[in-house]
Nucleic acid binder design. Structure first.
Lengths: 90, 90
DNA sequence: TGTCAATATAGGCGGGTGTCGAAGCAAGGA
DNA sequence: TCCTTGCTTCGACACCCGCCTATATTGACA
């Protein structure tokens, strides 16, 4: 459970997830993502792998490019953990 | 934004937050929390401080004990970030 | 087949983080 | 006033993580 939050513990990865999700069709390929950061390709690749190992995103190769998309059910599960009953429940 | 997720990147802290939130009244004092883990007091205190610095919980001293409670608005803000539009939105 | 473009993997360096024991405070009671 | 209890702070050690460069892999195309 915390493994998924750990994957989101880096600003780059949060932004990556947001970028992927906000792309038309919910998909984006790596080059588009890389160009949004001042980081090298391998570093972006590393972050994408972390997100993928956490089960937050998935990918598929289409010719030369690799497309990534988010896995909504995984995010919903995280979101559910944060839905806490209000403090004053007498 | 990622700072809050970073605070949740440790299993102990996720469990702490869950324990605090699930306690009657939404509050818990430290000794109760500590006894749920095989960790020393200082370590629990450290994790609580991380959660507090991230704005996820707050605390108050009442006599000898210190009570902690979660800040629902902070969790709601995190939860909102995870609410992603579905992949297929044509 | 050979070459190029797009990603991924491997390895190494520097800084950050979890954990502990020991010591320090605060509050209450003998 | 001194002691005990609950919790935090301090200092140190081992480990993990993000970043880079260099190298490998995969697919398209000539």
């Amino acid at each position: 459970m915390a493994a998924a939050f750990k994957a989101l513990s880096d600003p780059v990865r949060v932004r990556l997830l947001s970028l992927i999700a906000s792309h038309p069709g919910g998909e984006a390929y790596v080059n588009t993502l890389s160009s949004a950061f001042d980081l090298t390709g391998p570093t972006i690749s590393h972050h994408l792998r972390v997100l993928r190992n956490a089960g937050l995103i998935d990918c598929e190769r289409r010719g030369t490019w690799v497309f990534y998309w988010v896995i909504p059910s995984a995010l919903e599960r995280l979101s559910a953990v944060l839905n806490v009953p209000a403090k004053t429940v007498p």
